[in-house]
Write a protein that binds this DNA or RNA. Structure first.
Lengths: 132, 132
DNA sequence: TTTTTTGCAAAGTTTTTGCACGGTC
DNA sequence: GACCGTGCAAAAACTTTGCAAAAAA
């Protein structure tokens, strides 16, 4: 038996690109919708399988926000997320609001290794056209 | 269309107490298991409905940690969570590492309403066990 | 051609909903 | 007694898995 080799397919390429081009981490459904613009016949199962594959390969990774699992490309450096309370979209922010270097000891004796910040509010689009 | 009145029931009391007595935010299943110690016949649907009700009443709120939606009592003041990468326990921290008043406008035009911070690292117990 | 991948559909899971009975007010 | 809440079971929503056909190598 041979070790299975991961092949390059149109589906995988499109899904990977969709994630790369996204404004932030995408939920399975977002990926499906966007990828179908290029591949109308794309099946849901393929999306799930591809997201799992890309995750195992370390090319993307899951982020859970508001109880929903989303995926974003790895290697985009330190960043955080902004969840719009109006339209529900999630954006990636490259500005970090905290200063917590690794090794910082928090009150109580908690030794910090990493941190995650999620901001909530109105995204530029919704803040500008604040009509409901 | 009368405003529905929320009644006090044994199920709701037990579920609320389970959350209050918990050492940290609980997942639906945790709530179900613990509440059934007092109410063996408690149905899953009731747990979901009650968690939703309590959330709408603002008495509890959901937090997503490690890809799972959990619930914790509200009114415990502004706080954040620390997830120990060694023992897996989640702690509540009352010190806030960020200064982001409501209305702050983030670069790009994001209007901040709230924020959530999750810190990862070694809790006091685990840090002490391996530090010099 | 050989082996992997895909799309469809069936099978699992998880969460929500419809109902009749039971409980609270 | 009126009306809300509960448990059960069915339904809907969300993921995973089995297969034969299609695609990559």
């Amino acid at each position: 038996m041979t070790a299975s080799v991961s092949r390059s397919t149109r589906q995988r390429d499109v899904i990977a690109r969709v994630l790369q081009d996204a404004e932030g981490p995408l939920a399975v459904n977002d990926v499906l919708d966007r990828a179908r613009l290029d591949l109308p016949a794309l099946g849901v199962a393929t999306v799930y399988r591809t997201l799992k594959l890309l995750t195992e390969q370390g090319r993307i990774h899951p982020v859970t926000l508001d109880g929903e699992t989303r995926y974003e490309p790895s290697g985009k450096g330190h960043h955080h997320h902004f969840s719009c309370t109006a339209c529900g979209r999630v954006f990636t922010l490259h500005t970090c609001p905290v200063s917590l270097p690794r090794g910082t000891v928090y009150p109580g004796g908690f030794v910090i290794e990493a941190h995650e910040v999620t901001l909530y509010g109105r995204c530029p689009d919704c803040a500008g056209a604040s009509s409901a």
